[in-house]
Amino acid sequence: MSFMDILALIIPAAIVSAAPLIFTALGGVFSERSGVVNIGLEGLMLFGAFTGAVTIYYGEQFGLAGAAPWVSFVVAMILGALFASIHAVASISLKADQVVSGVAINFLAVGLAIFLTKKIFNAGQTPVISERISKSDIPFLSDIPIIGKLFFSNAYLTSYLAVFVALIVWYVLYKTPFGLRLRSVGEHPMAADTMGINVKKMRYVGVLLSGALAGLGGAVYVASISGNFTHSTITGQGFMALAAMIFGKWHPLGALGAALFFGLAQAISISGAQIPGLQDIPKVFLLIAPYVLTILALAGLVGRADAPKALGTPYEKGKR
């Protein structure tokens, strides 16, 4: 097997498994940049996956055909934001411990999603959808020699959307007044407040956006990878997205890069057996690689990762 063949096997697979992680990690960036810890990404993503699976299934019934997944993305974003609003109210207005509230979100999402699945379908899982996001070659770009074959052939549209959204998030956070305000309430809320920025409002926006993007991540996972929702559809992808966000140093493009890298690790762990040289590496090392790397990154061994200064602390007016 030539080197090119190996790359052609691995890279498209990596891009596919990275897309849901990218969306969710970007959601994490919004929330944590505004100063609210979001351990609940896992739950929000899970609820997005559930919403996506149900919407696509009924979309098919109502004859939406190929549009069903795209409709489901919108629905998952709305419901994701709604679900995240619980976390927002608890951690911003009621000043609950943000980590605890996030843990509760995760519990609630699992319970509610499976409870509703059993209620609606009388089974432990949703029916498998037939309208998936299909693989396609991007016209023109896929004809570029080498790069075209690796990056633009046989891939899901959602993967490119993910990269595109990452660029938008970067632009919004670093090139617009809104982004500056969002980041400022996460770094020094009192200073931001003095400058007339509504700290609570900005944090609400951050958390709701994180819910929308994590919901989208879950729905994309269903539409492109799993095809239905079961209790084992989302098991840790949300936490992996959280890891990607931290490994990417709370930066949208960093999160994008980290998510792609984690996707690569996943792709290799799945198809590593076919690749000469990698067969001998036990799969477990590839499975734990994202987590080990994140810990190393946090310990400053792979570049220093510093969280937003006010992360995790509720803002109280007039408190020093």
């Binding site: 619980i86 509760a104 519990f107 609630l108 409870f115």
Partner: peptide
């Protein structure tokens, strides 16, 4: 799963 929901609500 209802019990899971109740537990989550209690934590909240």
């Amino acid at each position: 799963e209802l019990v899971g929901i109740v537990i989550a609500l209690i934590i909240f």
